[in-house]
């Protein structure tokens, strides 16, 4: 396939038409993957010898945490596309994705806290990973708030995409700063398990299905929300024209 053909979907009309057909497919796939993965994980996996049944939380926690970061990356890419090629769909997709990312971050934090209570004996610890996720959540909040605050669509798209770029750099910096800071507090005390490496196959396959489910879920939802944003934008434009005319 010619890569240039991809840009035709930057046309809002074309985007709406195409997603009309694709959206049900992704929605069904997402639901199937989520249902299969979560049921497999919840009912048909053994308990971990150390964590007991809390290991089942992994099927929500890990995909949500992955998505929390990947959604921000997707917003970064779409922001760049907006800055370089100025396709409205791209900027609106970033806007549509931000609340999903924020919810994913909350899920990752909440399930992490619930898991941490019996495992670490505390809901919250200022562990580097937890802290960076909290900071990531703040970045999402700021990004969403800036979108909401600005009335002019193009101005909002420009400002938020620059904020996304700058925010990405600072989020990355914060990640390393937080690592350093916590080491400075407790020497080498590591609370987090390195999940991917410790996961046995029994847990691994349902986890993969769940991750696929979360990714598909995100794609379906972001398409839906982008369609809404495109329509909302067109509506604002029409209303403005009416007032002028």
């Amino acid at each position: 396939m010619n890569l240039n053909a991809l840009w035709q979907y930057a046309n809002p009309k074309k985007f709406i038409q195409t997603t009309e057909k694709v959206l049900p497919l992704f929605s069904v796939l997402a639901v199937v993957c989520l249902v299969v993965g979560l049921i497999w994980g919840f009912f048909f996996t053994p308990e971990d010898y150390r964590q007991g049944s809390t290991v089942k939380i992994i099927y929500l926690h890990v995909p949500a945490a992955l998505m929390a970061i990947n959604v921000w990356l997707m917003m970064l890419v779409t922001s760049l596309i907006w800055i370089v090629r100025r396709h409205h769909v791209s900027a609106l997709a970033a806007r549509a994705a931000a609340p999903i990312g924020a919810v994913m971050t909350v899920i990752a934090l909440a399930t992490g806290a619930i898991w941490g209570q019996p495992m670490w004996g505390t809901w919250w610890a200022w562990d580097p990973r937890l802290t960076s996720f909290l900071i990531l959540f703040l970045f999402y909040l700021g990004y969403i708030a800036l979108w909401e605050a600005i009335e002019n669509d193009d101005t909002a798209a420009d400002l938020t995409s620059i904020l996304c770029l700058v925010g990405s750099v600072f989020a990355l910096l914060s990640r390393y700063a937080v690592n350093f800071w916590n080491q400075g507090l407790h020497q080498g005390a590591s609370l987090s398990l390195d999940k991917e490496e410790n996961v046995a196959d029994v847990f691994w396959y349902p986890l993969l299905v769940c991750i696929a489910g979360f990714v598909l879920f995100f794609i379906a939802l972001v398409l839906l929300r982008t369609r809404t944003e495109i329509r909302a934008r067109r509506m604002r434009a029409l209303l403005a024209r009416e007032r002028m005319g």
Binding site: F42, G52, S53, T54, L60, I114, W115
Partner: peptide
């Protein structure tokens, strides 16, 4: 087991 509350509540919240 004894972690039922934690597992169920995290599924419910998510």
């Amino acid at each position: 087991g004894k972690y039922a509350e934690a597992v169920l509540s995290s599924y419910a919240v998510s």
